[in-house]
Design a protein around this nucleic acid. Structure first.
Lengths: 241, 241, 241, 241
DNA sequence: CATGAATGAGGGTTCATTCAT
DNA sequence: CATGAATGAACCCTCATTCAT
């Protein structure tokens, strides 16, 4: 992997180093933006605060993003991507689509709870951002459709099912911003959602309280790094699962 | 209330006329602000557009409101007030608290549907504004508590119940902004909500589909006047009830 | 002129006063812009310097002009307008079109010499601005055409004649910026121009040396006011006629 | 120049190769700058466009020029130099200084016409750049003085003569930017200039219409290479001579 | 030398708020 | 009280220049 012709190596090296630096800077900016959007909202004038948070010059920002919205888009994508990579594999462990939905929601809320920066971002962004998330945009409808087709849920209109699922979840994210969710809250919320979809209450309850696998962030996690930079740090939130 | 001493009458008259003028101006500003907030959101730069919409000078605005947020507050209060005056009396017709919640939600959504200006405003405002609304802040918890205490619903945590009710409603308001809700959507949404709260599905369905009284706006309605000033006017939306 | 109905008078008064204030501010800005453009050129970043020169806030500028070019246009128009109102009536005293051209050019150069602010502006603007001037754009072609049609000049191509006239004039404006034109320079320049157009040298000389009427600026003169605000003031320049 | 001591040769070689590379890079930058200045003017933000045009990195630019103005100076010098090397030898063929001036002007204008990149550059630069040009700054005054001293022209003030010559020429360059000069335009312009200087019209005409030698660019011509890189290429412009 | 990321001063523009008339 | 000109802080964005690799 190393005994190349020297002149190739030199150039390769330079190129690779440069690309890595660029990538790290981009990550640093996205990470800072996640913080700032969470604190000030998506419509705030953000650039000044961002570059202070990232410890970077004005010009640097514009070397990476052409505009405010560009940045928001990038953050949304990065967040979405990381959530999917973390939550989805765990949720896919369930073969029952209703259980999959339940697990996904609980993990999702747990993630937002464990990483308050994420919660703040999603809560601030509201439906606008939440709907951009692959987790919500891709996986949820897919699981809802499968649930309906296999008769697991009684709601035929997928849009309607979507509203019944996403609405309470978002409201919970919002609530979480002012104070941590009480013990068992999330499971009971999800149970309610399943009942709204037409599952019998005892079954909903049992599904919503199954033990959950442990969330594991990737080593280069955006969320982990972003949270590490907030003054009051978010401890673990066993309670909210 | 009127047979005063004659020499006072002239002054009284002047005072009363002035007060009425002031009131009318205030109403005009709030009405315009409702439009503008609905179109551009709560964080937008609003004042220029507002005074143009109201056909009023900059200075006049500041004679009535000290600041941007002041205005938002006033609009929220006015909206809240009118909604309560319209929806609540009708909902109170139900003696079953669960049915009262169902009727309230359906009327609420129907109102937002009939008066798109209201829908836009509430959707744009999200939980931030919705939670300020007396309808939601006062009446809903009251009915939820009563329902729980009388065993009509199985959710003991009122906050949780609140999330299960408000979340889907808000999501529906949001959905409505891009396209009218399909026929019967609202009733089925409310049925789902009731099931989430623990009602059996057949009972939830039956309650959510009961005939509704007709909405009647007060003669000096803020909503009616605001909607009358929008280019494409909102027709009646029987469908969404 | 004053015994109107009182309520009309009051409003009229207010309206008129406001309009006058606005007009004065606009004049002040244009006047300052004339200075600044003359000192820094048309492409310079001008707004900061302008508002400092005018002693006015950033916002005020934008209440009157939407952009840099807007301002340049306004200044060009104002300058053009004043020049026409000053120079043209005097030049029209001549019935011979060639003599009219000669008088116009000499007065034009004398004006730029007497009011260095104008000279700087026109010199800096070069053909771009000069060609926008009605004096040059309207009157000169008209007189050239008349001269040609009556056989006073031998150049049939009006564009060519235009170049032969405008070119040296502009160069003289440029020269004037570094040091005052020597005595009789302008007359000799104009004589050369007339010869270029085909007049015999003795006739050209005689026409170019005729006594000139005295320049008289309007009482509210933009040029006078602008010059009055320059540190080293431009004295009279008998020499350059 | 070549029979050095053998042990030095290797180093010499390296040195010479490096120097040549440096020279080629410098030429490439100047060439690109000529294009860019011509397209965007002297005051435009130029460096980004320049390095894109030259296909070179930011840093490289600063290895050759310390600043923007440095670059403009270098381009002016290079342009001036090439023009002199092309035009002057041909003009010196005339023994009559007036004819020399005429030939120089016509060749100058023809050059700007044949190589639109040059025309754009000079027209954009105006007197600021034109006056820096050796052609104009050195040769023209010399010929004017000789003409005056030998009684060929009647204008005693050399500055005045200069204005009468340079002014129309510059205006013609400007005109040429919007549309090609009509047939014979240049000759007639030059005839007018000679008349302005005091030559009789028939003589001026005859001098200005003498056949011209053909322009021949050096093999490593800056102009040729620059023009070759412009999308729509400048064909030959026999017309304008 | 070549490279291109980083810098930050500088200029443009908006908009909530004040205040003299 | 109505008016609308004036204000200036706050933002957005560009681009000449530097510097580590």
């Amino acid at each position: 992997m190393d005994s190349e012709r020297p002149e190739m190596t030199a150039e390769d090296h330079r190129t690779r180093v440069a690309a890595e630096r660029r990538e790290r800077m981009q990550a640093r900016l996205v990470e800072s933006a996640l913080l700032v959007f969470g604190q000030r909202g998506m419509d705030a004038s953000v650039i000044d605060e961002l570059i202070r948070t990232a410890g970077v010059s004005r010009g640097t920002f514009y070397n990476y993003f052409r505009t405010n919205e560009d940045l928001l888009l990038a953050v949304s994508l990065a967040v979405s991507d990381e959530m999917m990579r973390v939550v989805d594999p765990l949720a896919q462990g369930e073969s029952d689509p209703a259980a999959r939905i339940a697990a996904g929601l609980r993990l999702f809320i747990a993630l937002a709870s464990d990483y308050p920066v994420l919660g703040a971002f999603l809560s601030r962004g509201g439906l606008r951002v939440l709907t951009d998330n692959s987790l919500v945009k891709e996986y949820l409808p897919r699981d809802l459709i499968e649930s309906r087709n296999s008769g697991r849920i009684q709601v035929s209109d997928i849009d309607l099912a979507f509203d019944l699922v996403v609405g309470p979840t978002l409201t919970a994210l919002h609530r979480m911003q002012s104070r941590p969710l009480p013990d068992g809250y999330t499971a009971r919320l999800v149970s309610g959602i399943l009942q709204a979809l037409g599952l019998p209450s005892d079954e909903a309850d049992s599904i919503a309280h199954r033990p959950l696998p442990r969330l594991e962030l990737p080593s280069d996690s955006l969320l982990a790094r972003a949270c590490a930079r907030v003054p009051q740090d978010g401890g673990s939130s066993e309670a909210s699962r």
